[in-house]
Design a binder for these strands. Sequence first.
RNA 1: GGUUCCGUAGCUCAACUGGAUAGAGCAACUGCCUUCUAAGCAGUAGGUUCGGGGUUCGAGUCCCUGCGGAAUCACCA
Length: 595
Amino acid sequence: MDIDQKLKISLSKGLSDLYQVYLEPDQLVLQPTRKEFEGTHTFVTFPVAKQAKKSPPVIAEELGEYLLENEAIIAGFQVVKGFLNLTLKHLIWLEQLKVMEKQEKWWQASDKNQLAVVEIASPNTNKPLHLGHLRNIFLGFSVCNILEAAGYQVRKVCIVNDRGIHICKSMVAYQKFGNGDSPQNSNTKGDHFVGDYYVKFDQVYKQEVSQLVESGVAPAEASREAAILKEAQTLLKSWEANDEDTLALWQKMNQWVYDGFSQTYAQVGAHFDKIYYESDTYVLGKDIVQEGLKQGVFYKKDDQSVWVDLTDEGLDEKLILRADGTSVYITQDLGTADLRYQDFKFDQSVYVVGNEQDYHFQVLIKILKKLGRSYADGMYHLSYGMVDLPGGKMKSREGTVVDADHIVEEMINTAETHTTELGKIEALDREEAQALYKILGLGALKYFLTKVDPRKRILFNPEESIAFQGDTGPFIQYTHARISAILRKADAMGLPLDFSPQKINTLHSSEQGLIYLLTEFPHKIETAAADYAPSVIAQYVFELAKEYNRFYAEVSIFSEPEPNTRQFRVVLSQQTAKVIRKGMNLLGIDVPERM
RNA sequence: GGUUCCGUAGCUCAACUGGAUAGAGCAACUGCCUUCUAAGCAGUAGGUUCGGGGUUCGAGUCCCUGCGGAAUCACCA
């Protein structure tokens, strides 16, 4: 049984035996003992002091004695003020390790028989992906991995924003300046090719606006009346009218973008179970509007536009359908929510979308609840902060973006530079070396983006490259590579991966610390899943790697004369490596065998 | 202006959801490679947790208030 659970049961018994205080084991809070004190588990007695009618230190003392007598796994206790610090017997830790050894994936939670759908990435098709998308993608896929480890079924979906004025802008610019060029001819990745025309559009547009302003037109009017913008709007109209040529161009350019995206997705290891295209879904939601009107949840204004009143929820009135009967963003999102539920019958639906849409999702979920959609209770907006540059927000139009492909390539190059400087690749051939650089470069990038609380915005300074030392992906990967070397050596020596707990009478603090951390892994997965927080896993794996490095520096494995102890240390190393690997995989990161 | 989020060491971030003397990593300084990989380990230094009130045994965490930053409040998506 779980150590925590066992202790809680005994504590609960102790409280009732000693003080007639009746609390369920689950109501008791046990916390890890701070490093500066002896012990691993701490029970805080302050909360029960009133009921027990004694002072916290006295309770701690008496409970400690009680446990020492009645709970076999306790070796001793220390009382500091109202804190009862418990020390477990060495054997308990060693047996915990034995338990892990017996099961291949001892951290995997049992099947919850629940389905979670996670929406990730959701790019526009008029420009390439940037660092912000990477944060979204890494966060999203990591959450999927974590949910799976926590026992959920997971489906990954992506909704591609393939229609609208933005793609028409790229289309107009291509019509005017493209000269029939193509990504193949110009040797440019498709999404970048199309993105370049988006930038081109903006340049021309700005030029036209300033010309109009110079000729005496008011700035606000000029920005509406610029000729190229008018052309883009005309193009959007003919797209909506199903004009053949327009649709053909639209399809051609979108395909270029998809080809480009596919390359980027493949490079960073992203793949989706289902892709929705907005050109298919943007008409959805109108049925819901009718339904809402019938239910009296929505109402019509004089001009025939449809609204919902959320003032009782502390929000505003919100437009649902324009006076001319065309839909707005929220209309189609209502529709896609229904569609997604029809498609998957999910228990949870997670939207990985930037925090600029906090309000939108608040409104969306509230409306769905008003409409009586019970699935809305399982909806969650995983909101994350923007990735900012020192100069402020990234803007595709102005070219002030950190391009996804570029940063990935740069990270891989940096990994190569570091590795060659350290001169550690002599054993690897060219192909292996390239694979290693990719593992390291992407590892550094993914760790950098997932270790932070999603809500916080990330400041990315291109001048300072992402580090490879300290609290980084490569640090953890390095720890894994070190352990791999040990396991190779143990294997070559023919050491059996087995040991007898009874024959070991002392544990180094790092050994006990490692086993303790290993036993925490399933709990960390659980909290990470409950909070949709990859950062929990990132911090945990870092902690584990640090503890192993301490062990590595202070405890020798192969110069240990006692065979059983030596084998114990190899097993401990092996389990640590497994958890590091799995933990990093939860973040979408690979670990190398050597580096 | 309303709403939401954020403010912790010089910098980047933690703090187990109200617990002990607020912890890590960078950067700085000191040591440690003839030993299982030094992308490492050990140590020194660095704090009025934005300010001010309150709640209680106990507050970085909860409440109120002021300041600073971000997002949003579009018939854009």
